[in-house]
Simulated scan of single mutants.
Amino acid sequence: MDNTLLQSRINFPGMKKAVFDLLVQHQLMDPKLDYTKHSASQLIDFGRHSGRITHEIEASVWDTIVAYETEGMHGAALEDGAAEVLDALKSHYTLVILTNNARSAAIKALNETAIIHSFDQIAGREQMTMLKPSPSGIHFILEQYPDISAEQWVMVGDSWIDGKAAQDGGVSFIAYQGDQQEMEGHGVTPVAYIGHLRELLSPGILK
């Protein structure tokens, strides 16, 4: 959703640094770890795997993340062509949002940008057991639509964490303005790279 449909201003590098600093402060993370190579959700999982994270510490981490999300999503604009493309696709495809953001924050942003009506389902982090790049969210969506096989779904996203979740969930992935070197560095192989959302309307790009 962020930087795919919405021009999010979430400071993801700052968010990761804040999460890392909190975990280091509570001695749940090696301070020498290169946190820039991991997503915020992966850093949280590292903290959990230490076996020493408490409910209070994890709650403070999520409070920090929510603060960054709220600030960054406020007044977010649509990506160029987003409304047009959604209008063209919604009568032919099942459209689902899968975001690591809180579902309530996603719904608020989609309402503010007047595109929420285009979607059949909105899945936030509450619907996952682990955040992307885990395929947990993909599995949740597949369970909601048992008549649509994994091979029939296509995920569109801008980040390697989207692509990794899709691949590990058995779903094709299209990279929107994605960094090919970063994708390849994380073992992600999109079926296509696109630079504009309108390319999704090109013949043959979607199943």
Rank of each mutant, 00 (worst) to 15 (best):
A165I: 00
R125T: 06
Q144F: 00
K17M: 11
M73R: 03
L6F: 10
A102I: 10
Q177N: 12
G47C: 06
Q121D: 14
S91E: 13
V171G: 06
S50V: 03
P135Y: 04
G178H: 01
H49C: 02
A123W: 03
Y93N: 08
A67Q: 15
G47N: 00
H92E: 14
I44T: 01
L206D: 08
S118F: 08
V61R: 04
S8R: 08
I141H: 00
E126R: 13
H49L: 03
Q181F: 05
E71S: 12
E71T: 15
G178C: 09
A18G: 07
D168W: 03
Q7K: 15
I97C: 02
I174T: 05
A76D: 09
Q127A: 14
M1S: 10
H74G: 09
P13A: 14
V191D: 00
S8T: 12
V171H: 01
T99N: 15
G187V: 11
L110C: 15
R125Y: 05
I116W: 05
T113K: 11
A175F: 04
Q7F: 01
K32H: 13
L200Y: 01
P133D: 05
A150F: 05
I115L: 13
I174H: 02
V61T: 00
I122A: 06
M1H: 07
G51M: 07
L23E: 02
E112V: 09
L86Y: 09
G51V: 06
F12Q: 09
Q25C: 13
K207D: 13
G163Y: 04
L201K: 00
Q181M: 10
P135Q: 07
A150L: 06
L33I: 10
F173S: 06
G204N: 11
P190Q: 08
A88V: 06
S159P: 03
T64L: 03
R48L: 02
V66Y: 05
E58V: 04
I194P: 02
G204L: 11
K32W: 00
Q121W: 13
D87L: 11
H92T: 13
S60C: 10
K132D: 04
P146E: 01
L206M: 08
A77F: 06
A106L: 14
E182Q: 11
Y35W: 13
E112A: 15
V188E: 05
Q180A: 13
Y93V: 05
V154H: 00
Q42R: 02
P190H: 08
D34K: 13
R9G: 12
F119S: 03
Y176G: 05
Q121C: 12
F46Y: 07
A123H: 03
G163M: 03
P135A: 10
M183W: 00
L142V: 06
A59T: 07
D2R: 09
H196Q: 15
L78P: 01
L6W: 06
P31E: 11
Y68K: 00
G157I: 07
E184S: 13
K17Y: 10
E143T: 07
P133H: 04
I44A: 03
E71N: 13
P13W: 08
L197V: 09
R198M: 12
D162R: 08
M1A: 12
T113V: 12
S136M: 00
D87M: 11
T36N: 14
A109V: 15
T70F: 02
A82P: 09
D162F: 06
V154W: 05
V188I: 10
G170E: 05
I53Y: 02
S104C: 14
L78Q: 02
Q42G: 02
E143P: 01
S134M: 01
M15Y: 00
H117E: 13
H186A: 06
A102F: 13
A109H: 01
